[in-house]
Design a protein around this nucleic acid. Structure first.
Lengths: 282, 282
DNA sequence: CCAGTTTCGGAATTTATATTCCAAATTTGA
DNA sequence: TCAAATTTGGAATATAAATTCCGAAACTGG
């Protein structure tokens, strides 16, 4: 290439570079685009790694990183990396400061900003609440039940369906045999009749309890499978059949309850089940 | 010195190292104490500088830094620096790190408790991150697009399906006409063809992007409906067709990403759409 | 104040890392 | 479809960094 090429702009700040990357995203050759995507998604990694380890993670050659940097006007990778490091330096001291700045600026926030803040507060509060309430032994108990099962039946409708479908996704990626009993609208009661005493079920339900969720859980329990329940009250009708249960109280904001504590708990369950299985087979 | 010297403890976490430094501060030789003071006061600098530039700023020789590291049980400066870099990385400490920190602190906690704490930290961190990144104007833009639509198409598979099914539930209770294009396993492409220019779509997808999600979004956009996207990178292929988009970076813990920030954002969107509709009709 | 011991500074060495270069592969334009 | 231009992978090289080593200096205890 001729030396009259474009090297007008070695962006000096992370934000400037970020804009450039986005602007030129479509005109960049394949590997360079790959690097650009990786760099934006893992800026910390770019700041702290060596060129070769970074190259390996982004599935390119070290030399590609150097070329990438040069295309954007830097003299080499080190030069580019300096920008990412600068960002890291600034951020850490300002991290706490940003939180308080956020509180200050809440005054001139828009309506939708307030809405988001409210839901975000509710989410954080829910998680904090679950944190203080969750007892490790009850957790271990539930994991034992579910990890010992041949097939895990997942029950949850309406808002709980989001959670059970997520658990289904996680168990799928973890290679754990399971059945998602619920569809968004109703449960497949026929499927529940296949359960036996080697199986277990995870039922998730909050007030007002959906009838078919209770029915499905009951059928599965009557077929001998053990039942783990996530619910919001010790008076939940699901508990009659439960072997082990969690009380999760989601914080309410404007009449809508967060789902984050339930999601976080379920996620932990899924991974803990996989860990327990791995230990058993080892 | 004899080789039976103390090298029992190369602290694995920044906090552990910090404790050691403070404990041994008074028994350390002059230059080493000097380094210790500098390191505690400028941890970012230690993480990001080279040994020699650091040495210059702390007014010691590079070799002193190496000795300093070795006195604390590390093999050399690079080893010590790794601890400072780990602290800087924007992710919650890994499960393994928590386990070893646990061993040091002699605190009582179970393995599954640590797992839950990790996911809970990741969830809170994700929400904090979104809070600081979210711009009210982009939010208003997205709400306008979606609130103005006759029908809202919801697209999201795999992990994102949990979110879009949740949005579907919320929109349902709010009485807002919508279609859930995705099932847990695939998208119903036929349904996308019914979209027209009075409609809008909300597509949710994260790396690695599911092909049929991209296809569905494309078809809907080509039929004239406006597209709002929630994704984790400005390089997401979905953005080609997007009218408005959100970047949501979920924090990773042990290879699993939280979903809470996305859930919280989606929840806010759903309620904001309902509010906007109410204002219009009033 | 002196011998033994520890600590320190700085040059020499080793190791790791970024960079360059060129042939092979791929893409682009005609 | 083919030739020209661009892009890429990977080995070779240059550069920069960490580490070692050893003589000199500074402490320590008697």
């Amino acid at each position: 290439m001729s030396e009259t090429d474009d090297l007008p702009s070695p962006p000096g700040s992370f934000e400037a570079l970020r804009l450039q990357l986005m602007a030129r995203r479509d005109t960049l050759p394949k590997r360079l685009a790959q690097v650009a995507a990786y760099a934006i998604e893992n800026p910390d990694d770019v700041a702290l790694s060596t060129a070769s380890s970074l190259a390996a993670r982004a599935h390119v050659q070290p030399s590609t990183l150097v070329r990438f940097a040069q295309v954007f006007g830097y003299s080499g990778f080190a030069d580019l990396q300096a920008v990412f490091r600068e960002r890291l330096r600034d951020r850490v001291p300002s991290y706490e400061a940003r939180l308080s700045a956020l509180a200050d600026s809440a005054q001139e926030a828009t309506a939708s900003g307030l809405l988001f803040d409210g839901f975000a507060d509710a989410a954080e509060h829910s998680i904090k609440g679950l944190r203080s309430r969750l007892r490790p032994d009850q957790f271990d108990e539930a994991v034992e039940v579910l990890a010992g099962a041949e097939t895990i039946y997942l029950i949850g409708q309406r808002r709980s369906f989001a959670v059970s479908s997520y658990v289904s996704y996680l168990l799928g990626t973890l290679g754990i045999k399971h059945v998602l009993v619920s569809s968004p609208l109703r449960n497949d009661v026929e499927i529940c009749k296949f359960a036996n005493e080697r199986d277990a079920a995870l039922a998730i339900s909050f007030t007002p309890y959906t009838l078919s969720t209770i029915d499905s859980a009951k059928i599965i329990a009557e077929h001998g499978a053990r039942l783990v329940v996530i619910t919001d009250s010790p008076f939940s009708p699901l508990l009659t059949h439960a072997r082990s249960w969690f009380e999760v109280v989601e914080t309410d904001f404007n009449g809508f309850r967060s789902l984050t504590a339930t999601m976080t708990l379920s996620m932990t369950l899924a991974v803990a089940i996989a860990n327990a299985r791995r230990e058993r087979s080892a």
